[in-house]
Every structure is written in C-alpha cells, then in structure tokens.
Design a protein around this nucleic acid. Structure first.
Length: 270
DNA sequence: GGGCAAATAT
DNA sequence: CATATTTGCC
C-alpha cells in the first residue's frame, strides 16, 4: 500500500514569469498579452462562424456552436485564474494542503441571455465522477470536517474548473448515503465496496468521516428489556432508502483517469 | 443556501 | 442498468 502520488496534473503553462502576475481583480486585462494582436476591427466577429455557411455545407461541416461574449469571458477568466494559481500559490486553504487541480473543465455554462438566442451551449454535459475527482472530493471533505463539509465550501476548496455547487451537492448527497450504508455493514471487517458504488469504493472513506463525534452513533443500542415479544417495530419514517444491492460478478475498477462526459446518441424511447 | 427524497434524464 | 441532474419541500 503505497500508491498515493497519482496526480496527473497536466500543466502546459511553462515559461511563465511573475512579470504578469500583477493581477488584482478577476476581470483585469493584461495588456502585454494584447500587444501585437489584431484589433477588434480585424477580427471575425464572435457572432460570425469561422467557416462560411456555404463552405461548411459543402464539406458537411456541422455548424459550430456560436461563441458568445459571455462564453469567451468565462474561458478567459478560467485561463487567468489558472495562470494565477500556477505562478502564485501563496494561497493557504485549510492548512495549505491542496495542490492545484485542473482536470475537469466542463464546457462553458449557459449564459442565460445569449445562449438561448444562439441555440449554443445550453446544457452542460453530464459530469463523470472519476476516481481522481472523487479522491479530491473526499480529501476536501475530510479536511473540512463533517460540520464544514457543505457543497459550496467543498466546491471552492476542490478548486476544479467548471465544477458547480450542484455537482458537489448531488455527489455529496449520494456519498453520505454511501458512508452511512457502509458503516453499518462493516467496522473491522474488510467488507468493501458494493459494486454499485464503484466510484465511492475507489477511495476509502476517511475515519474522520466514519467516526463522528456527536452522540447518535451505533446502529442499534436498544437497551430495552420489555418482556413482551414485540415484533420489531419496523420502518421508521425516515429510513426508506433500501437500495437494492445486487450481487455482481466483479468489481471493475478501471483507471479512467481523465475527464469524461457522457455523450448521448439519439433515442426517444425509454 | 443546505439537506433530503423522488423524479427525471443520459 | 447505473449514475448524474433536476425538482420540490422543509
């Protein structure tokens, strides 16, 4: 057991000095970068496709998604923030322990106004929680502690481009169920991973999350000694998540390390 | 904003 | 079918 350093941080920003790191705000422009570049009057307007419609049609090129100003602004903001993290990592999170991470970068979200009119990106692709991403999620949650591990904070500390609060909230919800489920079925036993949860099983649940400090622990501390053969008072009101766990052949844990999104092929029935 | 359960989508 | 997202309620 010694394979921790499996970080695949793909950094292609090299040769960057602190010469342009004087960024104070989020929307500041770096003039050095603009020197020598064509002016706005020489550039193709964002509203115009790079490939003329006629040409595109002739070559069966699908119409490219219209980029809007907001799309560009987001992309450029992302770039700037990445560069800032790259050159000045003077940040201290909760103890200064989370390396910069830029694996997941879901495409630009839907800028309400222009996207609709343009028919461009209005639906962000379904995020795939890779073991890597989940690992980071777990790390952050563990370092935050149960009490502070809320979607927004987790999202911020994970520092993953494009990751939304909804993404995290949804994942967190499922993860909590998994943990709860997990601590009932094993304690000192190596009983791991129901195949249904292969994502969650990919990263061991930190003890800090298993053992909680508030008084409401063990599954069944019923010290009641009623002589009455009372049948088990079943289902409480809030315990209905009886997921079906099927037995499956093999826990497949592929090393899908990279950002993936589920594309869909036309299907109108289900 | 967060948590949760259920519905819905891919 | 599994899982991610959305929705409605608290």
């Amino acid at each position: 057991m010694g394979e921790e350093a499996a970080h695949l941080v793909d950094d292609d920003y090299d040769g960057l000095d602190s010469s342009m790191v004087a960024l104070g705000g989020e929307d500041e422009r770096v003039m050095e970068w603009e020197a020598g570049l064509p002016g706005s009057d020489e550039l193709t307007p964002l509203s115009q496709p790079l490939v003329p419609p006629g040409l595109a049609a002739a070559f069966r090129i699908p119409p490219e998604p219209g980029r809007t100003l907001l799309d560009v602004h987001r992309a450029s903001a992302a770039t700037v923030s990445r560069l800032r993290r790259a050159s000045s990592h003077s940040h201290s999170y909760d103890g200064g322990c989370f390396p910069p991470y830029d694996e997941q970068a879901p495409p630009p979200p839907p800028p309400p106004d222009s996207a609709a009119a343009n028919g461009s990106s209005s639906k962000r692709p379904r995020l795939v929680w890779t073991p890597q991403l989940h690992k980071r999620f777990v790390d952050v949650v563990a370092h935050l502690g149960i009490k502070n591990a809320v979607p927004k904070t987790i999202m911020q500390l994970m520092n993953v481009e494009g990751l939304t609060r909804e993404n995290v909230a949804s994942h967190l919800q499922k993860y909590r169920l998994y943990v709860k489920r997990m601590r009932g079925l094993s304690f000192s036993n190596s009983n791991d991973a129901s195949p249904s949860d292969h994502i969650f099983a990919s990263t061991p649940v930190p003890h800090s999350l298993i053992v909680h400090d508030h008084p409401h622990p063990q599954p069944l501390p019923p010290p009641q000694q009623v002589p009455t053969p009372t049948p088990p008072p079943p289902p409480g009101p809030a315990t209905a998540y009886m997921y079906h766990h099927r037995r499956v052949p093999m826990p497949m844990v592929p090393t899908g390390a990279y950002p993936q999104y589920h594309h869909h092929r036309g299907h109108a029935d289900q």
